[in-house]
Design a protein around this nucleic acid. Sequence first.
DNA 1: CCGCCCGTTTGATCCACGTCAACGTGCCCG
DNA 2: CGGGCACGTTGACGTGGATCAAACGGGCGG
Lengths: 247, 247
Amino acid sequence: MQQKAAIPVTIGHLKSACSQCNLRELCLPYGLSNPELELLDEMVGTRRKIKRHTHLYRSGDSFEAIYAIRAGFFKTDVLLEDGRDQVTGFQMAGEILGLDGISTEHHSCNAVALEDSDVCVIPFAKLEELSRQVTALQHNFHKVMSREIVRDHGLMMLLGTMRAEERLAAFLLNMSQRFVARGYSQQEFHLRMTREEIGSYLGLKLETVSRAFSKFQDEGYISVQQKHIRIIDIPGMRKLLNHQSPE
Amino acid sequence: MQQKAAIPVTIGHLKSACSQCNLRELCLPYGLSNPELELLDEMVGTRRKIKRHTHLYRSGDSFEAIYAIRAGFFKTDVLLEDGRDQVTGFQMAGEILGLDGISTEHHSCNAVALEDSDVCVIPFAKLEELSRQVTALQHNFHKVMSREIVRDHGLMMLLGTMRAEERLAAFLLNMSQRFVARGYSQQEFHLRMTREEIGSYLGLKLETVSRAFSKFQDEGYISVQQKHIRIIDIPGMRKLLNHQSPE
DNA sequence: CCGCCCGTTTGATCCACGTCAACGTGCCCG
DNA sequence: CGGGCACGTTGACGTGGATCAAACGGGCGG
């Protein structure tokens, strides 16, 4: 983004600088003082470029660091022995990847880039060390983990109680909201994932996802052109969520 | 359990003692040295008794502490505006409740005791303070949060990809495993929750849960007598999980 | 000890979504 | 520029689990 290296690198030994990062309001540096930010800059060792459709880490990899997404888009998924898998999340700039690895010292899911991406590598041992000294960092980190838990509960709710169209509406509104927080349009965006990945995330088959997209378009809620989505009627979409329960 | 107070109390000002607790291998004290345990004892201010069917906290309550279950059994659930709700977890002795509250300083789910229970109140500010000094505590706490995230991913997998009988099998094996870790029988236990609560947790209706119980019994996997379950064929149950995928 | 009530079981029917199949469509590479 | 291929759409049909309904059983209060 800032400079294009003449030699292609997969692991860039560029220094990151949290103090300069325009995502710091969304990420671990939030609310830190300048001297504290400098400590954080030291801790975040390197950045790493991840090409589209390659893994940042795989289930079973030993856990050493968490990753802050500087630019790009990821999915995480888990795999069952029998081959079934499920997308557990889509992550965008400013969000943290790798928290699943802390519990066992090994990652328990795969993280795959859905577009060429750029992450800050945060060695976990150093994070723990620094968060013993910087209270605000410690607190931010705890909030990040807790937010992940709350997010997961929301997804469980979706998977456990919602019907297909509600799930897709919830998904689109969630995307919209996250794009807004990053300064993009609320109603118009580009989805980086396939219908199958959306389906896996929402516990639906890709055909069902496709049909729901078509239905929303027919009813004037959205306009769909491949992966390009425009939400025409946001309040209408919201109503889809709350009202129509089968009981 | 140890002594019955003459006066009924809901908030007991009994000192807890992590150093004496027989659950310390499952809980935050794991691996701490004796002097560190004493610091922990100081931090854990009080214990609190929660009667069956009463709330430990409610969604929206301001967040001040997390809770370690000393004895008893809880469920957590989230509520949608339209009245639909979903059980997001069942918690037993040695497990931690309340982590959802860190992110917004308010709880985002309800915690209800399914039997008379007893929890250690861990003021969160003090926990953060102490975990800045005691590395092992800090690390344990991070592991507890991460474990919760991994658990949630497993549940998402269940809700997103498994059929009814697989879900129930997974649920029963999970219960069994957690009872073993607490020194109870692997094959025989008492469920504290109703069929409806199991259904809500598994994303099924209570009738479906009931039918699956009956089917398992007919096929000789388990014997069911109300809430009392005996698993007869554990390896058989495990096979139910992996093999029979529809694709 | 009886009767009520909540939780559970079981049966009959329905329907949302999965499955299978065919056809479009944008895009990359030769 | 054209052919292949992954991704997406749409249709016809099947089915697992929801829904509706009725009856059962066990625990508890009177």
